[in-house]
Amino acid sequence: MFLKLFRRKADFSDTDYLSEYRRTGNLTELGELYERHMDMVFAVCFRYLRDEDDAKDAVMQVFEQLIEELKTSEVRNFKSWLHSVTRNHCLMQLRAKRVVVGDEGLFDHEAYETFVVQTPETDATLETQLSDLGDCLQTLAVEQRKSVELFYFQQLCYQQIAEQTGFALTKVKSYLQNGKRNLKLCMEGKQHG
């Protein structure tokens, strides 16, 4: 009996749990699935709410939300779906409280998928894109350009970049994010115009 339970837990994938829950409506199924990802949910909640108890409450509220939503909606990638549900929940709470959280880039996370991920279709477009990339890199602010170059071309980590350039460790990330965004906008402008 015990062994069976264990094997079952190990073998069940997220989608198995989901279809099982939708079939039976059994909360224990959903609870088991949720426990797998609870550390992620808790971390995300803490990231936004910055308070241990609020984050704990949020984890439970997100679970309540799942109980309802998973009955009807089909979810393909549970983990990323769960993340966006969690994130939206936290943002809604923050908006309701009208608390401004002291984090620069909280409300404008964007451009997560970059030119780096998009594989160009042909060699010709790859070449033009690469030359565009070179041009665009020159348009970036010095800190952003340096960070992007060191991170993506030399594959260094934040700490190494901070050591080499003397930038503050926390700044490196925002340079990278902004640099990436600007690069993307620049590339899109070149493609369209």
Binding site: A43, F46, R47, K79, Y112, T114, F151, L156, C157
Partner: peptide, 30 residues
């Protein structure tokens, strides 16, 4: 450092990873 770079790169591309990472860091800080 290589593994750090991998994690950072993933976090830049995947918001779920980024949020989780930031949350863990914030927890450590707090």
């Amino acid at each position: 450092p290589q593994d750090q770079h991998k994690v950072e790169k993933e976090a830049l591309q995947n918001q779920q990873v980024d949020d989780t990472l930031e949350g863990l860091q914030a927890m450590k800080k707090a």
